Amino acid sequence: MTEYKLVVVGAGGVGKSALTIQLIQNHFVDEYDPTIEDSYRKQVVIDGETCLLDILDTAGQEEYSAMRDQYMRTGEGFLCVFAINNTKSFEDIHHYREQIKRVKDSEDVPMVLVGNKCDLPSRTVDTKQAQDLARSYGIPFIETSAKTRQGVDDAFYTLVREIRKHKEKMSKDGKKKKKKSKTKCVIM
């Protein structure tokens, strides 16, 4: 069974824990209790493949930012979460993405942009803004509501699919490099 290491990042209060708990335990946590770091595991079937999701729910508070490099190193894919009623959390996505790329030393890291709290009427981040940002990053965008469960499975499952595509691409690139290195030079 394939294991996928997913990391949920975003500013404090955007609903990272609520999304994760909704996926794992099928219930909505409405009281806000700032996370330092929590880890969850769940076995699911995605596109006919049974897999184990190892999900790291991270601290959004700035005082825990020193811990970010460590979990970013171990993560295979990242859910970059903002709240649709919090423009600052949307603007912060850029910083999370840049930090992930720096730590992973790669421009090509599996990510999904997630606009959470889409059940709320007080939207300050337009869907088109988020779609445009995701398009500019070359990553999928999904709106979710941890409260109603809308888009929750889709967000995590899409990230797994992005990781699969990335692994497939990397193995193809690896095979191309191996083929090239088999060419021999004969000096007579």
Rank of each mutant, 00 (worst) to 15 (best):
R149Y: 14
L6K: 02
E76Q: 09
K117H: 15
M188Q: 10
S122Q: 11
K169F: 14
L133M: 07
E3Y: 04
Y4E: 09
R135A: 07
E98H: 03
D154V: 05
Q25W: 11
V29K: 01
D153G: 06
N86A: 10
G13R: 07
D33R: 00
Q43Y: 03
E31N: 03
F156N: 03
K5E: 10
A59W: 00
K178C: 05
M67V: 10
I100F: 06
P110D: 01
M170C: 07
D173L: 13
V9S: 04
D33E: 06
A11I: 13
R149E: 02
G77K: 12
Y137N: 10
L133T: 08
F78N: 00
Y71N: 14
L6G: 02
R97V: 15
Y71A: 11
C51W: 10
T124L: 07
T124M: 07
Y157G: 09
P121C: 08
G75P: 07
K128T: 05
S39W: 01
E3I: 03
P34H: 02
I21T: 03
M170A: 15
D126V: 05
V152D: 09
I21Q: 03
P110N: 05
E49N: 13
K42E: 06
K177I: 12
K177G: 10
F78R: 01
H94F: 14
S136D: 15
I46T: 13
D92G: 05
T124N: 09
E37D: 14
K104P: 04
R41K: 03
T2K: 11
C118Q: 11
K179G: 04
S17Q: 01
R164C: 12
E168I: 12
V8W: 01
R123Q: 13
H94Q: 14
M188Y: 14
Y32L: 07
Y96S: 05
M170G: 10
D69F: 02
V9W: 11
R102W: 15
D126T: 06
L53H: 02
D38S: 00
A59Y: 01
V44C: 12
D33G: 01
F156P: 02
Q131E: 10
I100Y: 13
K42Q: 09
K16R: 00
K104A: 15
K177T: 07
G60W: 01
A155V: 11
V152Q: 14
G48V: 05
K128E: 06
C80M: 08
K101W: 13
Q22V: 02
R135I: 14
D33P: 00
R161N: 13
T148S: 12
I142A: 13
G75H: 04
D119I: 11
L113R: 00
E168N: 04
G151Q: 13
H27G: 13
V44M: 15
S145K: 06
G12N: 15
E62D: 09
T144G: 03
G15M: 01
G10M: 01
K88V: 13
G13T: 06
E63P: 09
E91G: 05
T50F: 04
F141W: 02
E162A: 07
T20V: 07
F78H: 05
I187N: 12
M72G: 05
V186I: 15
S106Q: 12
G15D: 03
G151I: 07
V81D: 00
F82Q: 04
I46L: 08
V160G: 05
I46G: 11
M111R: 00
Y4W: 04
K172I: 11
L133D: 07
D154T: 05
M67L: 06
S122K: 09
L79I: 13
L6V: 09
E98N: 13
T20A: 05
H27C: 15
D38F: 00
I100M: 07
I84N: 14
T50A: 09
L133N: 14
I84P: 14
V125H: 10
D119R: 14
G138M: 05
D105L: 13
I84A: 13
Q99I: 15
K180M: 07
D69N: 10
K5D: 07
K178V: 11
L23K: 14
D47C: 07
L120V: 13
K42Y: 07
K101L: 11
L23I: 10
L19S: 14
K117P: 01
R135N: 12
